[in-house]
């Protein structure tokens, strides 16, 4: 894959994290935590698994960590984990319905949020946040999927 394509993908991921940074201070009052950055990365791996390998996941994770995280390695770890999982089951995902995909990706996202709270902010760990975030991210995933797909088709 061309370097410019990597830059485009990275830009969308950064945009996702930036939206998270912008919106989460507002939504957290409603026990909601959005996770656009992670979902966008997951989408890209799901859409073009043959072009995004472990090294790309590691690199994107590192950039996300440097720019948006409080610790180095967290996004790297989860990006590489979700990347492997998607690569492993990509054929099965192809026959999944939107609902099933939503559940999987939202579940992954919720796991990410849970681990983030557990590792970095255990005092704020909340099941309400996790449940509501799971529901809202499941809904958002469908919209995100459609938007990103349209974007991908217009770019690549």
């Amino acid at each position: 894959m061309k370097f410019s394509n990597h830059l485009i993908i990275l830009s969308t991921i950064i945009l996702g994290f930036w939206i998270d940074d912008f919106l989460n201070p507002l939504t957290i009052k409603l026990y909601l935590e959005l996770n656009f950055g992670f979902l966008i990365f997951a989408y890209w791996v799901f859409a073009i698994p043959e072009k995004l390998h472990s090294s790309a996941a590691l690199f994107y994770g590192l950039v996300a960590d440097l720019l948006f995280s409080n610790v180095i390695g967290f996004n790297m770890l989860f990006f590489i984990a979700i990347s492997y999982l998607i690569h492993l089951y990509v054929f099965r995902f192809r026959i999944f319905s939107y609902f099933q995909l939503s559940v999987f990706f939202s579940g992954s996202s919720t796991f990410y949020i849970a681990c983030k709270y557990l590792l970095l902010s255990p005092n704020n760990y909340s099941y309400i946040v996790l449940i509501l975030s799971f529901l809202i991210n499941a809904v958002l995933w469908v919209g995100l999927y459609l938007i990103m797909r349209a974007f991908r088709r217009s770019i690549f």
């Binding site: 698994p49 390998h53 472990s54 090294s55 180095i72």
Partner: peptide, 23 residues
């Protein structure tokens, strides 16, 4: 899988990330 996805690379990446995170 459509691409060659060796678990070794992912394992190395995972270990590296975990190490960085831990440190």
């Amino acid at each position: 899988t459509p691409t060659y996805t060796p678990v070794r690379n992912y394992a190395i990446g995972f270990s590296l990330s975990a190490l960085l995170l831990f440190s």
